[in-house]
Design a protein around this nucleic acid. Structure first.
Lengths: 129, 129
DNA sequence: GATTAAATGGGAATGATTGTCAATAAGCCT
DNA sequence: AGGCTTATTGACAATCATTCCCATTTAATC
């Protein structure tokens, strides 16, 4: 169905993502790609990020202002500890949390239980500024 | 500073919120209020919901589509177990989680630690449909 | 009732995201 | 290599929640 052609645009987007440590908005990714010489349509960036998210190649979070942000992600379920000042994002895993969340759902008669968790704060570097 | 006048618009919005059990978008609140006879501007609804959120009179969550949703809230910090089908929202508290989240932040050198957590699933009623 | 600043409303403006569709090009076949 | 098929692209229009603007209204005070 999805024959997944490897276009230069897709490569450029992946490259831009690889060069970034933390979450960036689609618009920022678009700007980054175009800075590198290529000229890629905004629609294309959105389409690819969405596809990559669905393929679980990138992580997506919705920021406090409702803007979606993306980042290449390691495999497996995890959460983030994000600095609200500089955007530094550290991956967090917590087996206990996973179990607890599922149990809460079950206790209330829910099925197909999923959860999202974001921890935020000010990182050490930003605090000393 | 904020003299907080008790306008009939604000009353109507509070009334609409009181009549709803679960999270509703600003647009839905607006529709609800206008159904009850009053004619209130959309800007006013947004302004008041934002103020009420800042005053911690209402809970706000950002849905998966980036739309903000509001609900009158009981006091204190808590999370929600939400049915993705019907919108049923159950308040959850978990001391262990709070402690864990804060500890994760501290372990990584963060300060001013906050967190958001949403658990979702299909509630019993929706499952049997 | 008069005064005054807070609050309203509605229409325009913003800004992210999605839709459209003709033009382009990746991968396959020979 | 050349041709074919169809996934993919890109420029622009369209959508939609939310915010902005500002003249008008009105709650609270005296």
């Amino acid at each position: 169905m999805a024959t997944q052609r490897l276009t230069k645009q897709r490569k450029a987007i992946t490259e831009a993502l690889r060069s970034q440590e933390n979450f960036k908005s689609a618009q920022e990714i678009h700007a980054l790609v175009n800075l590198n010489g290529e000229t890629i349509g905004l629609s294309t960036v959105y389409r690819n990020l969405t596809e990559m998210f669905e393929a679980r190649d990138v992580d997506m979070i919705i920021g406090t202002d409702g803007e979606s942000q993306y980042r290449l992600c390691s495999n497996g379920h995890h959460h983030h500890l994000t600095c609200t000042n500089c955007g530094l994002a550290i991956e967090i895993t917590g087996e206990a949390l996973e179990v607890w969340a599922k149990q809460v759902g079950i206790d209330n008669g829910f099925t197909e239980i999923a959860h999202t968790l974001e921890i935020t704060g000010i990182c050490r570097a930003c605090k000393n500024t």
